[in-house]
Amino acid sequence: MQNIITTNDAKSRPVQLVLSQASTPEELREVQRLRYKVFIETMGLTSLANADGLDSDEFDAHCDHLIVRDADTLKVVGTYRVLSASKAAKLGRLYSENEFDLSRLNHLRGRMVEAGRACIHPKYRGGSVIMLLWSGLAEYMRRERCDYLVGCASISLADGGHNAVAVYQALAEKHLAPAEYRVTPHLPFPIHKVEAAHKPQVPPLIKGYLRSGAWICGEPAWDPDFESADMFMMMPLANLDERYARHYGVTPV
């Protein structure tokens, strides 16, 4: 897998971005260093700080890792972690099951790819990196013959959770999954006990999912480690189609 896109997203210069899949231990460490910078250092999560400067867990070894590099600097500027249906079966669970009861989706397990740890360097957040990653996700799902993309999407609780409640209430009106696809959080975020913000600020990643036809599959879980409210989302591959590649000029090589 390797796709290329030229963009003006990076500050002060045009840049060529290259999508590939991590294939060496060093590439995995590059991914983990970027995640640490974005998830722990930038968010100020001192409780998760460590000496090696890596964001890692037991799932990394079982997952595939999409990476986007700046072709000039060769630095990893974006990543997505993906767990195929076959690897999830061997592992015995999805990462999302740390937070949600997914028993209603048991009949779909052989057709689901789980994506998570979406991470983009702050200087490259104009849109092209995530679209390139999504084109890689679509290609990965076709290769794995899976029909559904699932995973958790986070909303910061830095404001006390008021925005998280507002976002959930707004999205539940139009984007709630049918009852047969609903999941239940193990540790629910208390949406009925926190006042909603006046105007919801939907995180860009969630906006992208929704534009692609994704559902939110129930009330959010509370992740105290990352200080976030997490929503379980599901998106059919049919909605993650090639319009992104055509619109953003992604060219397979």
Rank of each mutant, 00 (worst) to 15 (best):
R145F: 07
G136M: 00
H162L: 04
A170Q: 13
W215C: 03
L187M: 09
P200S: 14
K193W: 06
R211C: 07
A221C: 14
Y124W: 05
A153S: 14
P203G: 05
L205A: 01
V194H: 13
A196G: 05
F189V: 00
L205W: 00
M141G: 06
G213E: 05
F232W: 12
G218I: 08
V202A: 04
K199Q: 10
Y209T: 04
H121D: 15
F232S: 08
D223T: 05
Q169S: 13
S228E: 11
L176A: 11
K174T: 15
P178I: 13
A179N: 08
M234S: 05
P236Q: 07
R142A: 10
Y140I: 05
Q169R: 15
D225L: 13
E173H: 14
E242G: 10
H175S: 15
P236A: 12
W215S: 03
V167E: 07
L137R: 04
H192R: 12
G213H: 09
G218F: 07
I216F: 02
Y209G: 04
D241F: 01
A153C: 14
R125P: 02
A158F: 01
P220R: 01
R145A: 15
V167L: 10
Q169L: 15
G127A: 03
D223G: 05
P224M: 10
L171I: 12
K123H: 12
L137C: 11
P122A: 10
H186T: 03
D241G: 11
S228F: 01
A177H: 13
R125L: 02
G208A: 08
A164M: 08
A238H: 09
G213K: 06
A197Q: 15
M141D: 06
Q201C: 10
P203I: 09
M141P: 05
D225I: 00
S212P: 00
L240Q: 02
H192L: 10
A170P: 02
E180V: 11
P220K: 01
L171F: 05
D147H: 10
W215E: 03
R243M: 03
W134N: 00
H175L: 07
Q201D: 12
P122M: 11
L240F: 05
Y181G: 00
P224Y: 06
P224D: 08
W134M: 14
L157S: 00
L240E: 02
L171K: 07
V150S: 05
R145Q: 12
I191T: 12
G160N: 03
A138K: 09
C146A: 14
V202F: 06
G161W: 12
G161P: 06
G208R: 06
R182G: 11
E180D: 12
H198M: 11
E219G: 07
I191A: 07
S135I: 09
A221D: 02
G161M: 11
L137F: 02
L149Q: 03
G218R: 10
E139T: 12
S135M: 01
A170K: 15
Y140N: 10
K123W: 09
L237S: 07
C217W: 09
A179I: 13
R125I: 05
A153L: 14
E227Q: 14
V165W: 04
Q169W: 11
V183Q: 03
A197H: 08
A197N: 13
G218L: 06
R142K: 15
A172L: 07
R142M: 09
D147L: 13
Q169E: 13
A229F: 06
A153W: 01
G127I: 00
